[in-house]
Amino acid sequence: MMPSTLLGPASLLGPTSLLGFVAGGGTACGFAMVPLAAVNWHGLFFLAFAVVACVMAVAVVLADNVVRMAFYLVLSLGATAGLFFLAGAEFVGAMQLMIYVGGTLVLLVFGVMLTAQAPFVSIKTATGDRVLAGIVAASLLAVLLQAAFSVHAWREPGRFPGDTGGVVEPMSTPLGMALVGVRVDDPSPGLAQENGGGNGDGSGGAAAGGRSGYLLPFEIVSVHLLVVLVGAAYLARAKRRRSSRELSEAAR
């Protein structure tokens, strides 16, 4: 038994125990309030990631230097990806790392490029604005927190990840199927028949059930991305042309 678990110890931990250990560095180990034996791993890492995410988000607000802001933002987004891993949404977490953090990378590059000149590196915010924003933020936060705590069902403690028998539930396959329009959790009877038939393509049964797949939104998003790509390329196109009228005026 020993050898087989030598490098695979963390299956009970939720997926990111090691990542968490690296990123969090075990910072939250020092909570003296609770008996140490009762500490659970999931919560520990949740705390670590949550603290990083929140603190870095606040740091984004407080920083003036664009590049530092982008750096804090990346840390915040990265920690959020960790939270997604902890919540069992591995695919979303990896996606967040790849697209969100990658997108921010481009932000950072732009920050560097646009602020190569000293005056734009830090555009200061007026103190009055800060105070005002602080008040608004506090009230907004209060409202949101009140809302979060108001629903009883949300306050129920979750499960320990270990409760699922040590197997991390694979989320990406059902997600991918949902995106092509098939719900694996769809109990509609049509599917059973198809299954019996043995050669169904699976997509027909989705509409029959109450829950729909996401094929249409998926397609819309892909078209949307294409449009955005074209639009962004157009907005940042390399050159602008004079109209022919202006040309003739210039010639005169």
């Binding site: 695979g8 963390a10 591995e90 695919f91 990896a94 991390v168």
Partner: peptide, 10 residues
Amino acid sequence: FDFVGQRLNV
């Protein structure tokens, strides 16, 4: 086979 820091679904 089992020598993996954390087996990830993704």
